[in-house]
Structures are given as structure tokens and as C-alpha cells.
Write a protein that binds this DNA or RNA. Structure first.
Length: 581
RNA sequence: GGCCCGUUCGUCUAGGGGUUAGGACGCCAGGUUUUCAUCCUGGUAGCACGGGUUCGAAUCCCGUACGGGCUACCA
């Protein structure tokens, strides 16, 4: 059997969404598992949505996760070019073939006319029933068509969907799926600007690039019947690729994050976003919107009931309810990251505005290995109880048959857990590499030995990379403040002198090791009849300012004698003030 | 609205005629660590509903409900 060939075919309209990354991953995994080829194809047929930099972003994201394409723009391959905008004439040729065969036709309807038709009838479909009423080469006389063409009237080419037959295809994940062509519309194949639509381009390219498996999101399931028709008309049905439609990644359910503290914030944010995105409907409705959201959120058990549109709703209310519904439920979207405070993109994206800029998993502090592992399990499982998988294990275990059918709600907590696990088992030197830039940004430049020990001490206490810096900042600078509660409870100003004696003792230590510090502290405690609980918290607080952190004596060893002594002497003065306040 | 797809703990899922319905995250409790975290132990909680088929249904069939996708000269 020939080697399998898979493709990831994103469109360069901005940052690559996490769902797209997972699609790429499944394509990549299957290609690697079967010793096949992983192709990257850029679907840039919509010039109006083209965003410069998006293609680089896609490639960088794939590289970050270790999924380099075997073929693609900049990667070589014998089936190029791999950008659809560079393949225009190829599509035109095949579209012409369909015209000649009578399987496609010219249509001259303007955007306005189509818009009107849809407005008159919401269920309007450009199909066998409607096409003779429209302006196209089927309804017009040949000479009218010729005249229109001669005049240079803009036209599109549409697929002539057969009247009434059943299109059946097999999906690896969903098994048999059937569509009646009577339900299908005459999809545009070639747009007025001469560019193909997705439907035409993807069939032609998949065939020409000898793609054997099409793994894509479920949003494509509905148009697959059109695609089958296209394969048939082009005479390629026998070599049609295997289809696999992936379950979608969904937003977390509102019930999981709505609580007393998030409710008011989210209600306000929703009202503001509504005002920004739909200014006309929102005009003068801002405060009412916030109230409505607040009420609905507070009664989260009946949230869907609150959002149901009622007959007596005015237009603004209905519009806001619809907006809320789409913001709260459904496919995970780029806005959800901002709204809920977690990344939905692999890498950060700098858009034109802050509105259009998003943080990535990388910048949020995720390790690529963890991101990959987490993503792989979003809709797939190995069939046993393992869940920690490196790339090689993933390649070994992956199969399309074990991909789920149902949509998967995004769960940031599980993602964070994965990241924590990966941080714990990562090499300190590797983590040091990741941490260096973050440290530098804060103005910290520890030497390598110090950094490695710092990581060793902190790695079990970090969920994301920035946690190292945020929770362990006091390794690089003096404590910014002291946790007062413990001081008020435990610090006795009359013991100030006593504690100074402890510092004196520590300063005499020839070897400032954790063991020596411990021994010296224990001797001190014994001499003065003090308990661990009376001394250790003070040592911790004096050096770190917080009660959270690694073992005290090890922390002190890393800080060094000089630093510890200074920190403690000045801390005790501060403790006196706090205790007396 | 129409068409298509789906539904097992709060979430991700295993299980596909006879199971004490298993695991993971989260949460709760206990232990270890005189902090925090890690780690260990335990607990919490689930087959959407209604009909069939069957000796027996979470599992098969039909319907309902609910969720999702599509319904562009976007992909």
C-alpha cells in the first residue's frame, strides 16, 4: 500500500485557534504513526480576510509544538505550490471542466440580490427549486449569457447539485452519514474575483496532492456531501480520501465558572462587549443589559431559561439575550480566552488593537510538551488509563478509531494540572532555559548555579512558568512586605534581642549549609526553651515575607549567609512595628 | 425554521446485553512535610427522559428533550 498523506490546511486569517492546533496534531500523529507525510497547505483564497503574519504564526506554532510539516510553503515538496492563492489557474481549469460537463453554471446575481432573496425568505436556498428564478446560465437564454459575459458582468460559478438523490459517505469517526441532495444548495465554486471557494479548492488540492485522509473539524461535516459530489463530477470518486470529522472544542459551561466573585465582573464585561460589538442594538441599553446579565448569572441554575427569548421582549433585549447565548455556549472562540482568563491560542498574537491581541499557551507559561499532551486528550483517549504521553508515546498510541464523537468542553484546570506534572518531571536545566527570559524581563540575572538550585526548590510549587518568578521573587530581591497575620500572632518584640543572638550564631557558621543552619537553630531553641513553631515561621517570614515556600533551611542556604543576616536584622525591626501596630 | 451530528460523575473519559459502572481533573477529609506545594490514603458525585426488543438494557431500536454544527462570492 502507498504511504498515507495528510494535510493541515488552515487559513491565514489571524492566530491559529487551539482547535485548529488539535486538528493539526491529529493529522501529524497519524502521519507519523503510519510513516506517512504531513503536508501544510495555506488556504488563502479569501483575500479580504488575509492577515499578514498569520502564516508565520501558524508555522511558529507548529514548530513550538514540534510538528514540523514534511511539505508546505518553505518546507519543499513535489506537490506545490502550497498556497492556494498561487494555484488560481489550476482551479479555473477544473471549474471549466465542470461547466463543460454541465455540472456547474455561471451565475450573475449580485450580492444585493441574494441578500434581498434571503431577507424576503429566511429559508431561501440557492438550489434546484430556486435557480430558475435567479440570473444564471441555466435560466437565461444563451445569447443573454453571452452578452453578459461580453459586457464583463461579474459572475460566479456554482455547482449544479442534482435534483434528488442520496449522497452517502463514510466517516471514520461517525460511520455512515447520509444527505439528500434536495437539501443541498448550489455552492459557489469560483468567486467573482476568480478565486475558488474552500469547497472547490480543497477538493482539487487534496486530489492533486494525493491526500489520503482528510481530518478536519466537525463544522465541515455538513458540506461534505458537496465535496463528495465534486469528487464524483471530477471523476475522482474512486480515489476519494477517507474522512474523519473531529468533535468540536466547546466553551466551558457557565455553571463551572459563575460564582459570587465572577458574576458581577462578567455581567459588566458582557454588557460592555455587547455595546462594542453591536453598538446599534446596545444604544441606551447598557445598564439594562448589565442588570439582565447579572440577574441571569446569579440564578445560574436557570440560566438558559433567562436567556430564552420571549415574545414580549423588545428588540434590544432579544438582541442582548442572543449575544449572551452565543458568548456563553458553543464552540470555543478567541474571545473566550479574554473573557475567562485563559489562553485559547498556542502563541501570543499581536493584533492591530488590544482588542485583537491574545495571549498564548506559551506566554501563559505552558510547556510545549504539556500543551501537546493536554491537546491530544481533548477528544481522543488511548483506551486504557494512561494519560501522560510524550510525543513518541502519542504517535505510538494514536488512532482515529479512538477519537470521540461528542464535543469536548475546554477545561483549563486539567490543562494546568498537566503543566504542573511536566514542570515537576522536567530537567532543571531545561526549565532554566525557559525561565531565563522571564527573569531578565524582571531585571533578575542569577548565575546558573543559583538558578538551578532555585528551580530545584521551587519546581513542585509551580503550575505555570511565571509561578516560579511570582511565587519565588524573594530569591532575587528582598521581601516586598511581610505577612502580618503570622507576625501579629507569633512575634514577641521582647524576644528581638534573643533572635538577634540567633543571627549572630548563624553568622559564625563556617559552612552555611542547610544542615549547619538547622543544627545552629536547634541549639538556639534548646538553649532558650523555644519551640519550632515559635522560631521557624519567623525565619521564613524574615527571609521570604510569606509563609509559603520551600524548606526554610534550604532556602536560607541558597540565599547565602550575608543576605540572610541582612534580611533577618532588618525584618526583626519591621516585625516590631507590625506587632505594635 | 430546515438539514446533519451528538448525550456515562461538575469536567474529560473507560465500558457497547448480565460490571459493586472503572480512571483522571476539580472539590472535601485524613496522613507525610512544624509553612506552602509535592506525594500517599479515603470520600463526594454519573448512564437525559419515555417507550419498545430481551429472561435481563447504561449498552440494541424508536420517539422526546437537551446540546452542538451548518444553513456566505468565510474558511
Amino acid at each position: 500500500m502507498d504511504k498515507i498523506r495528510l494535510r493541515f490546511a488552515p487559513s491565514p486569517t489571524g492566530a491559529l485557534h487551539i482547535g485548529g492546533v488539535r486538528t493539526a496534531l491529529y493529522n501529524y500523529l497519524l502521519a507519523r504513526k503510519e510513516g506517512g507525510t504531513f503536508v501544510l497547505r495555506i488556504e488563502d483564497t479569501d483575500q479580504s480576510r488575509y492577515v499578514p503574519g498569520a502564516e508565520d504564526y501558524i508555522i511558529n506554532a507548529l514548530k513550538w509544538l514540534g510538528m514540523e510539516p514534511d511539505e508546505g510553503p518553505g518546507f519543499g515538496g513535489e506537490y506545490g505550490p502550497y498556497r492556494q492563492s498561487e494555484r488560481k489557474d489550476i482551479y479555473q481549469k477544473y471549474t471549466q471542466q465542470l461547466i463543460d460537463q454541465g455540472d456547474a453554471y455561471y451565475a450573475f446575481d449580485t450580492a444585493e440580490e441574494l441578500e434581498q432573496a434571503r431577507q424576503k425568505d429566511v429559508t431561501f436556498k440557492y438550489d434546484a427549486g430556486a435557480r430558475m428564478q435567479m440570473r444564471n446560465s441555466l435560466s437565461m437564454k444563451p445569447e443573454e449569457v453571452e452578452k453578459a459575459m461580453a459586457e464583463g458582468l461579474p459572475y460566479v460559478i456554482r455547482l449544479k447539485v442534482p435534483d434528488s438523490e442520496t449522497v452517502l459517505f463514510t466517516d471514520v469517526i461517525r460511520e455512515e452519514v447520509a444527505f439528500d441532495t434536495a437539501e443541498l444548495d448550489d455552492k459557489v465554486l469560483l468567486k467573482a474575483d476568480g478565486m475558488p471557494t474552500y469547497h472547490m479548492a480543497n477538493i482539487v488540492d487534496d486530489h492533486l496532492m494525493k491526500i489520503t485522509h482528510v481530518i478536519r473539524g466537525e463544522e465541515w461535516l455538513s458540506s461534505t456531501a458537496h465535496h463528495v459530489l465534486l469528487y464524483r463530477f471530477l471523476g475522482w470518486e474512486d480515489e476519494m480520501p477517507t474522512f474523519a470529522h473531529l468533535p468540536l472544542i466547546l466553551k466551558p459551561s457557565p455553571e463551572s465558572y459563575l460564582n459570587k466573585s465572577t458574576t458581577p465582573v462578567l455581567a459588566k464585561r458582557m454588557a460592555q462587549e455587547f455595546a462594542r460589538r453591536q453598538p446599534d442594538e446596545a444604544k441606551g441599553y447598557e445598564s439594562k443589559a448589565e442588570n439582565l446579565a447579572l440577574q441571569a448569572f446569579q440564578d445560574k441554575k436557570n440560566l438558559t431559561t433567562h436567556l430564552k427569548e420571549k415574545d414580549k421582549d423588545d428588540a434590544q433585549k432579544a438582541a442582548f439575550k442572543a449575544f449572551l447565548k452565543s458568548a456563553l455556549y458553543g464552540k470555543l472562540s478567541k474571545r473566550d480566552g479574554d473573557r475567562l482568563g485563559f489562553p485559547v491560542f498556542p502563541l501570543s498574537w499581536e493584533g492591530e488593537t488590544a482588542e485583537d491581541s491574545f495571549i498564548g499557551f506559551r506566554e501563559y507559561g505552558f510547556l510545549p510538551e504539556a500543551t501537546l499532551n493536554f491537546l491530544a486528550l481533548l477528544g481522543w483517549n488511548p483506551g486504557d488509563e494512561r494519560e501522560m504521553f510524550d510525543k513518541a508515546a502519542l504517535i505510538d498510541a494514536f488512532s482515529l478509531e479512538r477519537v470521540n464523537k461528542a464535543g469536548t468542553k475546554f477545561n483549563i484546570d486539567k490543562a494546568r494540572w498537566f503543566n504542573q506534572q511536566y514542570i515537576i518531571k522536567s530537567d532543571n536545566a531545561y526549565l532554566a532555559e525557559q525561565l531565563r527570559p522571564m527573569l531578565k524581563e524582571k531585571g533578575y540575572a542569577p548565575d546558573e548555579v543559583f538558578l538551578l538550585q532555585f528551580i530545584e526548590l521551587m519546581k513542585e510549587r509551580a503550575v505555570t512558568l511565571p509561578d516560579f518568578v511570582e511565587n519565588g521573587y524573594y530569591f532575587f530581591e528582598r521581601p516586598r512586605g511581610y505577612e502580618e497575620k503570622m507576625i501579629k500572632k507569633r512575634w514577641k518584640p521582647e524576644r528581638h534581642t534573643l533572635f538577634t543572638e540567633l543571627v549572630d550564631g548563624l553568622e559564625q557558621l563556617p559552612d552555611f549549609s542547610a544542615e549547619a543552619i538547622k543544627a545552629s537553630s536547634e541549639a538556639f531553641m534548646e538553649k532558650h526553651g523555644l519551640k519550632f513553631g515559635e522560631v521557624l515561621p519567623m525565619l521564613r517570614l524574615a527571609n521570604a515575607g510569606t509563609m509559603k515556600g520551600p524548606a526554610v533551611f534550604e532556602m536560607m542556604e541558597l540565599l547565602g549567609k550575608e543576605e540572610v543576616s541582612q534580611r533577618m536584622r532588618s525584618a526583626f525591626n519591621a516585625f516590631d512595628d507590625i506587632a505594635q501596630s
